[in-house]
Every structure is written in C-alpha cells, then in structure tokens.
C-alpha cells in the first residue's frame, strides 16, 4: 500500500505571493524522506501540498504536478477529501480531538468512511493502531478516558495511531517532535523506523540530527534570497547530504555556518 510521490515543477502560492518555486523531486516508497531548512523557506508548505491541505488556507493554490502512484493529485476530477484519506498527516502540535476518548480518537478517521463497524472489528483496529504507534501498553487500561489527559508525547503517538488507523499510503509529519521532550522524541523516532516498513514517510524537521537519524533521503530548502520564494536547493541520500553534499549552500547550513 505504500506509494511513491513524484513532484514536478511545483510552484506554491498564497494569494499572489509565490512562496515556493520550481520543486522537483521523487519521494520513494517505504523510505523516510526528510525536509530540512531554515524557518520560512517553505518546507511545511511543500509538505502540505502533498495531501492538499495547503488549499485549506484561503487564497492558497498550487501549480505543477504531484503524482502519487500514477494519479495526479491536482487533477480537476480528484476530490481533495479522497486524497486526504489516502495520505495521512501528523502535525507539529499534538491535536487529539479534545472531547473524544482515546478509543474514539483512534477511530475518528475510520468513522468518517461511514461504514458501520462491528464492535470487535473496531476494537481490533484500535488495538492494532495503538500497537503500531507504540502506545498500546500505556493506554490499554484507559481507552475510555479523554485523549487530552495523556502527556504531550503520548498525545502525539495517539495522533500517529489515528493517522495509521485508516491505513494510508503515505504518512506526512510536520515537525512531529518539535513540541516534545527528548525522551518522547526518541520514542517517536523509533516509531518512524518501524513504520517505514509499511508506509512512505515524509517528515519536516528543524533538527538536523533528527533528519540524519531517521531519514533515508533528505531535501534541503532555502530562500533564493531575502524576499524571494523558497526553493529546493538539494535533494540527495541522507548519508551523502550529511557527509559530502553537492551544493556548498547545503554544506554551509548543515555544518552550522549559516541559518
């Protein structure tokens, strides 16, 4: 079920403002791809075009092609709602639904698909997803409690469980650890390694060590110049990016001489 994503000549706008220009890359299936770069260079913006969450913001639009497994996401016949059901997303701040229990939070996406689920079927989805998110042992005795009662790291893993409960083709993560402490971060990173065998994962991160630890390939984004749109500077295997990058700009950013 994991799919690859081809991005070609993508320009992303907020109203008349061109935020990101000319992105070309291929995100491979069953690999972790990391986006790094300074704040405001468009990494999250690019990530959000991959499941059409970008256009939720009024005036935002995308030019170019994003193709998942031969299907162009921005084809006029494609329903953005259907895209988002195939491509899950985890956000910067954990966002479980505050009024729902842990159990209902995990099933939130499945319930949208409107199928009537049997109780045991629902139970097994919840167990499988929570196990997949390494949260099962911590919450199995309190599934009926509200999701907001968990710690930040647990909430984020609950959100991951919610995202994988619908078995998406791709999992997008927008700085999933930036609001978490180091121990929770390490738990999420371990989880990313495990999820890789089933899902294509794209992760935006500010933490370069994290990118080096979890990803197979890395894209470095930067602004062309102050006031100019963001662009993809270099896209290479993570090992190469962190040892011997092609672009001097990447080298400068990674070694901390800039940004």
């Amino acid at each position: 079920m994991a799919k690859s994503i081809d991005i070609s000549d993508v320009n992303i706008y907020y109203g008349d403002f061109l935020a990101v220009q000319g992105v070309n890359m291929t995100v491979k299936a069953r690999q972790v791809t990391a986006f790094i770069g300074p704040s405001g260079c468009g990494k999250s913006t690019v990530l959000r075009t991959l499941n059409r969450m970008h256009e939720v913001i009024p005036g935002a639009r995308v030019e170019g092609k994003v193709v998942v497994d031969g299907q162009s996401l921005y084809d006029p016949s494609v329903d953005p709602v259907a895209v988002r059901r195939q491509i899950g997303m985890v956000f910067q701040r954990p966002n479980p639904f505050p009024t729902m229990s842990i159990y209902d939070n995990v099933l939130a996406g499945n319930k949208l698909n409107a199928k009537k689920m049997k109780k045991d079927e629902a139970d097994s989805i919840v167990e499988k997803s929570l196990k997949g998110a390494n949260l099962w042992n911590e919450v199995k005795d309190r599934l009926a409690k509200p999701g907001m009662g968990l710690s930040g790291g647990q909430q984020q893993r609950l959100c991951i469980a919610r995202a994988i409960a619908v078995e998406p083709q791709v999992l997008l993560m927008d700085e999933p650890c930036s609001a978490l402490d180091p121990i929770s971060t390490s738990a999420i990173e371990d989880l990313i390694h495990e999820l890789k065998s089933d899902y294509t994962i794209v992760i935006v991160t500010h933490n370069m060590q994290q990118a080096a630890r979890v990803s197979d390939e890395t894209g470095f984004f930067n602004l062309k110049a102050t006031g100019e749109p963001g662009q993809l500077v270099e896209f290479n295997s993570t090992t190469k990016m962190f040892s011997n990058p092609d672009e001097p700009a990447t080298e400068a950013y990674i070694s901390g001489r800039f940004g």
Binding site: N51, M53, V56, V81, A82, V83, R84, R85, Q86, G88, M89, F91, R93, N95, P96, F97, P98, T99, M100, A108, G109, L112, N113, C159, R162, A163, V166
Partner: peptide
C-alpha cells in the same frame, strides 16, 4: 489545529464541523 486534524483525516467540511467545531 483541531479543524486541520479533522480535515487531514479526510473529513468533508460538514464532518469537520461535527468533529471539531461543534464539540469545541
């Protein structure tokens, strides 16, 4: 963040309203 949580799961606008806006 709650509205986006619902939308990213593939909620239509009405489903988003039911999941995120009304409870809040």
């Amino acid at each position: 963040m709650h509205k986006e949580a619902a939308l990213a799961l593939g909620a239509t606008r009405w489903e988003m309203i039911k999941m995120a806006v009304f409870p809040y």
